[in-house]
Each structure stands twice: as structure tokens, then as C-alpha cells.
Write a protein that binds this DNA or RNA. Structure first.
Lengths: 183, 183, 183, 183
DNA sequence: AATGAATGAGCTTTCATTCAT
DNA sequence: TATGAATGAAAGCTCATTCAT
């Protein structure tokens, strides 16, 4: 993972990985069988890490949909998720998604789960607040904003703050769901 | 460009490009001097294409900031910009931005220009409508949404429509700038 | 010839030659049929140039063997023969002599002719002066010195003068053939 | 080294070297990192080999300058130095000296050292014998003769003998320094 | 469990040569 | 007589993978 962050997923060699680990040339193939498999395992680890934090955040949150939605969105801008090291990995894998069915399957499964959760919470909030916005539009907007803000973080990280990102998300929630997210 | 779309920017070879062009092995280096330069020229072409459409859209739009903002955002979901072929290219280059200063410079210059335009328009709209939202938060939210929606387009393009994407953006505008963007 | 001097015989390309001539890519093959042939023609020109000056020097010299020997040796350190541009060419071709029979034939023919002339002159001088040195040893020594001094000229040309080189040759002649070459 | 001798330094390929070693294509780059570096290491080995023999010869020689000068010059025509295999290498590298600063540095350093040693010995001999020749002229003549005789060895090796070469050198010494080198 | 020398396919790049114009 | 785009073989180099130790 350090190597991907440093050289990009398209440029790392098994030699880099072995050197980073302080071990010998052939070691990666010994433990991971192939480079492809090493990368796949890396993505699985990354997705698993995210999923664990996601579920923990939902667990911790109260029962109200608005609280739960806030918890889920806030998680994406907490340091344990939203840091250069991990974001670099996500974008690295996403950039390969088209060419590698293995990555696609893993990413799509997770995206669908995430979207489902957000969609259900939005639906509940809209029903409760009798808002006119459609649940799918809100879900699209929210998930798209998260991805877009992550991308901004990666590209210009010096002029970027987690707080400003969360503000942008909140600017949406406060206007679209004003009763549930007062200013 | 076809080759990047098909195999990913990390996997194309000059052989692929030559074959796609129906020409011989050495032809790419003859005209482009190196693979790096070919890719750089490709990015420049892509950025130039976008810029031309962007400026044309602004030109065509009326003088009012809201009209201009709408024109700029709508452009990002028109078929001539938001199609798989071109989005694949953008994400391909973005994924290499960290490792390649050449790409970074080209992309950053454009991003800054785009953000400036949107920020000025939001500032004007907020002043005119006496909205309470901050211009930077709105700009962040809007540009992030665009990027995030493009990404969604690329990843699950079958269950994705340009219209739904534009709806998501409009859902934000209508709630944040209700006087300028009535439902 | 300029190109060989600048980049070395192993690095020139027909592109370099064409550019130097201010003409187009394919021009060399049009006039010289192949790169090999171009180089062969270059060597023939160089050897012909030397031969012409050699014969002119012998022609100009008086009838006495010592005069003739001096003329022949002095020629090798005259600016029209012993200049960087031409020496570079000689050594360039010599370095390829082993691998290219064509070059070998041209060079050997000339070397043999040169050696013959010097040998005959030395023989005549030795007989005339009743020197004890063998004619072949003297010939070897003189031709070797010329080649060695040329090489020194090429390698450290700033700290090297034609006069000093001729002095070295004369130091040999004066000691070995003292009656014919008084100090 | 065998390959250079066989095909010339301008024509060898890493494939040739690998085949000669009975190993696979990529092996040279594995051990030597690049073709350039392989050639540089070869030159360093050659120069180191010469230097070791040179210093051993001086060590073995008696204390008298004439003995030492003889030892140094004789070394250049001993089979362990003056054989086709090694001479080919020297001329191969010399032919590239102009284009390759790396080679130049190594060769110049050695040349200067060699010239210094010979110059000091000649100076001592001239002082001792009160000869009229200048030390620099004698040094030039001797080093040039060595180089020239090597070249002759390489070009017409069948009609060339180490003995005849040494005779040529001795013909110079006997006449220029007669008290120190009696016939 | 670990090493690291060795492999060899595949890449980018160079360049002499060809040929329609 | 000249052009220069195009060719394609061959080069140096990289690197995932193998395997005897």
C-alpha cells in the first residue's frame, strides 16, 4: 500500500514491494502467488477496513434516520478513512476497475451496499419530513459529493480541509432536509 | 484514445496504438517521439476540447449569473462531454496525476480555472439572492458533485442516466438558490 | 565526415548525415545506396586525399633518400594532414578495421605501400651511411612513432603541438642516422 | 571481452554477451544494470590488470633508472599485455574516448601516470649520461612508439612479432641513450 | 519460511531502408 | 533529383515468475 501511494498502481513492481518489506525478490510470489492476487488482496483489505468502520459507525449512531445518515456521511471525512494514504488506494483501484473484472466485482458490491443504505435513510427522512425531493436524486447527490470531495482532497490536499468538505455536504443536507438538519 | 478506453492507460502499448491505427510498429515514435509525449498530447487534446465547449457554452448563455451557472453545469452532462469514451480518458489521466508532474500541471490549471468561474458565479448569485450559504461551500459541493457523478457514470453506466445526474445537481441548486432555480 | 568527427563512427545515423547536408531523410540511400557504402566511399576519399599529398611531397622533394624520408615524415605533421578533423576519421576507420574486411583491405594496401617507401629509403640511407641499425627496425620505429603521435594528438590535443611531435621524430633520426640528419 | 574482440565494440549486443556466457537475455542487465556500465566495468578491469602488472614490473626492476625504463617498456611487449585479445580491447575503448567522457577520464588518468613515470626516468637518465636530447621529446617518442607498435600488431598481426617491436624500441634507446643501453 | 540468481516474454525506442509522390 | 512518411527488424531494458538452495 505504501508503494502504490508512492509510485502509483501502474508503476509498482514486486521488487519495490519486497524492498519496502525488507525482504527478498521472490517473497511476494511465495506468499501471494502472483502480483494480481497481491493487488486483489490489498483491495479486499481496504474494502474490509472501510466496511468495519462503516458498520461500527451505524452501530454507534442513534436510531433516527437523520442521525444515522449523518454518521455515515461524517465517517467519510474522518481521518481514519479520509487520509491521503487510503484515498490514493481507492482511486488507484478505481482507475483499474474497467480493465479488471475482479476489482469491478469488489467495488460494485460495496457501492451497491452503500447506496442502498443511503437510499433507505433518505427515503425514511423524506417520508418523515414530507420533502418534495426524490430519494434517488438525494442519494445520487450525496454519494457523488463524497466521491468528488475525496477526489479534490487527493488532487489539492494542501488547500483542502476535512471541515470544508463536511461543510459542503452539510450545505446540501441543511437545504434539502431543513427540519432534520437545522443550520 | 480508443486504446486507453479499451485497455486502461496502464496497459496500452505502442503496439496496440499502431495496430489500432492500422500502421506499423515504429510509427508512433516517428510522429510523437515517445510514448510519454503521445499521452501528454492526448491529454492536451482532451483538455482543449473541453475548454472549447466550455467557452462556447458560456458565450451562448445569457448574461445572468444563474443562466451562466446552469450552462456550465449542464455542459458536464451533455453527450458531447459526458460519454464513456471521454470520461474514461479523464479518469485515466487523473489516476496518473500524482506520479506525472506533466499531467498534474495541465489538470491543475484547468481545475483552477473551472473553480474560479463557478465561485464567481455563486458569489454573484448569493449576493443577488441574499442567501446564507457560503460561496466556497457551494462551489465545493457543485464541483464535487460533478466529479462524483462522472465517476458513477463510469462505474455503473448501465443503471445511470445523464438526466438523473442533472436532476441530482438541480436538487442542490433548487434548495440552495431557490429564487434563482425554482423547482 | 563532420558527423563522424562529432558523434563517432559508431553513433552516426543517416539522419544525422542528411540533416548536416540540409537534405531529406532518404537522400543518402539515393546517392550512396547504403550506409556501408557511404562509409566505404568516405574512407576511399580520405585515403585518396592522403595519397595525393604523399605523392606530391615525394615529387617536390630532392632526389636524396634523406630528403625524401624527411619529406614523407614531415607531411604527417603538416596541418593539411595532421588536423583533428582528419585524424578523427582515420582512427574511426581503424577502430572498425577488424570487423570490416572492406576497410581492412583499403587500409592494409595503403599501409603496405607506405611501409615499402619508408623501408626503401631507410635501406638506402643505411647503406650510404653504413649505419648498423636494421632497416626494418628503423621503419617500424618511424611508422609506429607517427601513428602513436597522431593518437596523442587526438587524445590530448590542447597540450600537443605539431612542432613537438616533429621534434620527437627528429630526435630519432638525428641519433640513428646522425650523418644524414645533423642536430 | 571476447565479444568485443570478435565483433567490435560498436557491434556487440547484450544478446551476444549473454550467449557467450551461456546465459539468458536479461542476465547482463541483472548484474551490470546497463550496457554502458558493463563496458565501463570492462575498461576498469582492463586498466586495473595493466596497472597491477606495471607496478609489479617496476617493483621487480632494479633501482637504476635505465633498468626501470627498460622494464616498463618491455612490459608493453610481453605476451600478458601485448596480445590480440587485450590490444583489441584497448583500441576499442580508445575509439570511443571522444564520445564517452567516462572512458576519457579513465584513459586520461592512466596515460598521465604512465607519461609521468617515463618522463622522470628519462630525466634521470639524461642527467646521468649528460645526453643532449630533451626529456619530453624522448618521452613522446617512446610512448608514441609503443602505441604505434601496438596498432601495427593489431592491424597486421601475422607479419608482426613481439621481438621485432621490442627491437624497434631498443633501436631508439641504443642510439639516444648509448651509455645506458649498449647495443 | 526465505533467498536471490536466473529466465524469457514483452516493452519502448532507434534507424537503415523503401517507395509513392 | 529529391522528399519524407512508413516500415519492420533489432536493440536495450524491465520485471513477474521460477526454483535450487
Amino acid at each position: 500500500m505504501k508503494c502504490i501511494g508512492r509510485k502509483g498502481i501502474g508503476s509498482i513492481t514486486l521488487g519495490d514491494v519486497a524492498k519496502e518489506a525488507g525482504l527478498s525478490q521472490g517473497i511476494v510470489n511465495l506468499h501471494f502467488h502472483s502480483k494480481d492476487n497481491l493487488l486483489k488482496e490489498t483491495l479486499l483489505w481496504l474494502a474490509g477496513d472501510y466496511k468495519a468502520q462503516f458498520e461500527a459507525a451505524l452501530e454507534r449512531a442513534g436510531p433516527k434516520p437523520a442521525e444515522r445518515l449523518h454518521a455515515v456521511l461524517a465517517l467519510d471525512f474522518k481521518p481514519s478513512i479520509c487520509n491521503r494514504e487510503k484515498l490514493v488506494l481507492w482511486f488507484a483501484f478505481w482507475s483499474e476497475v474497467r480493465a479488471r473484472p475482479t476489482y469491478r466485482k469488489i467495488c460494485e458490491a460495496w457501492d451497491n451496499y452503500y447506496d442502498d443504505v443511503v437510499l433507505q435513510l433518505c427515503t425514511a427522512i423524506i417520508k418523515d419530513g414530507q420533502y418534495s425531493v426524490s430519494a434517488t436524486a438525494a442519494t445520487s447527490a450525496l454519494t457523488a459529493m463524497t466521491d468528488g470531495l475525496w477526489q479534490a482532497c487527493l488532487i489539492n490536499s494542501q488547500s483542502w480541509s476535512r471541515q470544508a468538505a463536511m461543510d459542503a455536504v452539510m450545505s446540501y443536507l441543511q437545504h434539502v432536509f431543513p427540519k432534520h438538519f437545522p443550520a
